[in-house]
Simulated assay, not measured.
Amino acid sequence: MIGKPRKIGNTINEIEEGQSLSVTESIEDSQLLLYLGLTNDANPLYIQHDYAKTTAYEKPIVPSAMLMGIVTSAVSKHLPGPGSHVVNFSINFIEPVYHYETLTFDFEVIKVDKMKEVVTISVEAVNEKENRVLDAVVIVQPPAKNSEEVE
Rank of each mutant, 00 (worst) to 15 (best):
M1Y: 05
M1V: 09
I2V: 10
G3M: 09
K7W: 01
K7A: 12
I8L: 14
N10V: 04
I12H: 04
E16S: 13
E17A: 15
G18I: 10
G18N: 04
L21V: 07
S22T: 12
V23R: 13
E25L: 06
E25T: 06
I27K: 03
I27V: 14
I27W: 04
E28V: 15
S30D: 07
L32C: 02
L34G: 00
Y35L: 07
L36Q: 00
L36M: 09
T39V: 09
A42H: 01
L45S: 01
I47V: 08
H49L: 13
Y51K: 05
Y57N: 01
E58M: 13
K59D: 02
K59Y: 04
P60C: 10
P60L: 10
I61D: 00
V62A: 02
V62K: 00
V62L: 04
P63L: 12
P63R: 11
S64A: 15
S64H: 05
A65Q: 08
L67G: 02
M68N: 12
G69S: 06
I70V: 13
V71L: 13
S73I: 00
S73T: 08
A74P: 02
V75K: 05
S76P: 00
S76Q: 10
K77H: 01
G81M: 11
G81K: 08
P82E: 09
G83Q: 12
G83N: 10
V87F: 05
V87Y: 06
N88C: 07
S90K: 14
I91E: 03
F93S: 04
I94C: 11
Y98I: 06
Y100M: 08
T102K: 15
T104D: 02
T104M: 11
D106S: 13
D113K: 13
M115E: 12
K116N: 13
V118I: 15
S122W: 05
V123F: 05
V123C: 10
N127G: 06
E128Q: 14
K129W: 03
R132N: 06
R132Q: 11
V133M: 05
I139M: 15
V140M: 14
V140T: 10
P142V: 12
P142K: 12
A144G: 03
